[in-house]
Write a protein that binds this DNA or RNA. Sequence first.
DNA 1: TTGTAGGCGTTATCAC
DNA 2: GTGATAACGCCTACAA
Lengths: 340, 340
Amino acid sequence: MPDSPVTLKDVALLAGVHPATASRALNLETRLLVSEETANRVLAAAAELEYHPNAVARSLRTRRSNTVGVLIPDLNNPLFPPMVRGLADRLENHGYVALIGNTDGDDGRGRRVFEQMRARHVDGYVLATARLRDALLDDAAHSGVPVVLMNRIAADDSFPSVSVDNEAGIRLLVDHLVALGHRDIACIAGPQDVSTGLARYRAFRSAMADAGLAVPDSRVAFARSFSIEEGHRCAREILAADSGCTAVAAGNDMLAVGCYQALDEARLSCPADISVVGFNDMPFIDMLRPPLTTIAFSHYQVGAHAADLLLDRLNGHASQPKVIYVLPTLVIRGSTGRSS
Amino acid sequence: MPDSPVTLKDVALLAGVHPATASRALNLETRLLVSEETANRVLAAAAELEYHPNAVARSLRTRRSNTVGVLIPDLNNPLFPPMVRGLADRLENHGYVALIGNTDGDDGRGRRVFEQMRARHVDGYVLATARLRDALLDDAAHSGVPVVLMNRIAADDSFPSVSVDNEAGIRLLVDHLVALGHRDIACIAGPQDVSTGLARYRAFRSAMADAGLAVPDSRVAFARSFSIEEGHRCAREILAADSGCTAVAAGNDMLAVGCYQALDEARLSCPADISVVGFNDMPFIDMLRPPLTTIAFSHYQVGAHAADLLLDRLNGHASQPKVIYVLPTLVIRGSTGRSS
DNA sequence: TTGTAGGCGTTATCAC
DNA sequence: GTGATAACGCCTACAA
């Protein structure tokens, strides 16, 4: 018995009722429409035949696929797996499955997987790939199904979104460095076309200004992506241009890792010569040499919250689009020390 | 136009043909059944209306969902994202999308997501969760759709599978340690109910025997899972019981990381006091202190090969189930040194 | 409370 | 080469 084309009709037949009745008995919402006795008979028949409803047929009929499309920049970035876990776990509890697609930051790829998902009639989208101005976002908004943003948010607040409070996080970092006596702090800013990159950079400037510290251009480098390579490149740029900085604030942990490499090459010691801070407290970052001082928050919760926001929409509870900011925490480790 | 219920019928109407003809014109395999002129008219109409076929309806009719179920122990383990990428990228190129589910090594969870996928009529499965004896595997075999194993293989060779050559890898590691003068080598073995755990442990014993070295029980600890915590626990056990070992071979990198922690706590230095080797060369493991000597192989390729094996089956090319072993490479880093 | 009938959008099998 | 028809498995008005 390798194949199992046991359908609703089979169950109905065994239970001695009409398929429609069997359908009603099997679905919780409509079960009360049927007498308890027949309901039990149907349930028993279904159990005996090991009936599993055909989700495809159901989707076609109900026009709901119980499926959610999730766009991730790159699953290899350790920041995302926990988010995806939080998201998928929560969705699963509500009967949805997640279709996960990687975009590699490439618009073409992003659009292709988006269309794939649309063709499969996903009931909603969770996008972790949002840029501040993003054509895909506009399309998604017009796709007729709910869209939630995760990690990165859009320029306006038109989408329900979940992100970390970047401003608060950066402030914690700058205050920490200042408290250690640093006054000459460089910045490796992330891409300015995504909210995390822009918000952190702005927060950095504003926190520095509040501390009465200048940020000369020579101490700022802009990474084109949140990658180790770009962190490396930017750190070299800063080291080459500037002679005075005693600390580097990287736009995220990946950039900080690249910064580590540049320091190594320049035979500079962290934190003895230069302190480094990151952002995200991504998995395994605490095992680097030295362990990185950074901003922590629950990645899993970001995903779980995103799922909740989407589930709200999916259930028709269309509230105002709101942005949830999860709380950042400063984690002080070995990469920061007193200004030399 | 927020909603887009543009269906085949609409296209047919605009092109002035019957829906069946439109269908034929739109599908590559059947396009040659229709005159070139009408085919072009249909294509033009489809383009104008931005027609996207409803994959759900198609699935119902063709009984193929163009969907593949993928079971992963835990996406948070950095070993798996690259595999999933290799798998999903390859599948995507052939029109399939991957449904990814985490099991957390829990049978109940595994079964639930498996059933979810079955209900969605996936066309095949890729399982990275196989234990040597595994009830889920038996069920999957009887599910009537192709099954491929990834990373872990089954006790017999009844499934097409992709894995690294564990024996060769372990031999490289042991030879490396022996060449450094180590004779007293401990082993943190992975779970013995999965192929990777068992094969590596057996290979370790056999490589040691070939080198004429004894492996007393006090120098072997068995981890219940491939986790940092278990590596930590096992390493403490070995350190507590034995006084003579100068090197530890961990069943994988996660266990090696746990071993690092135990060494730190015992104020032992690696590699000065004790050398450590891992297995997998998982992402970021090269950034630890010290960088880990381990066995590398292309995780992405493992996923890609698994996809190829599955695609073969999906296309009806049912060859003998074969096991593909990808080639391991020894990566010598800072965690191994001459025996003290 | 249960049965009837129709259709979700597509493709396969007939005819023409 | 094209059109008509039916069916994939399920759900839901509506009727009984």
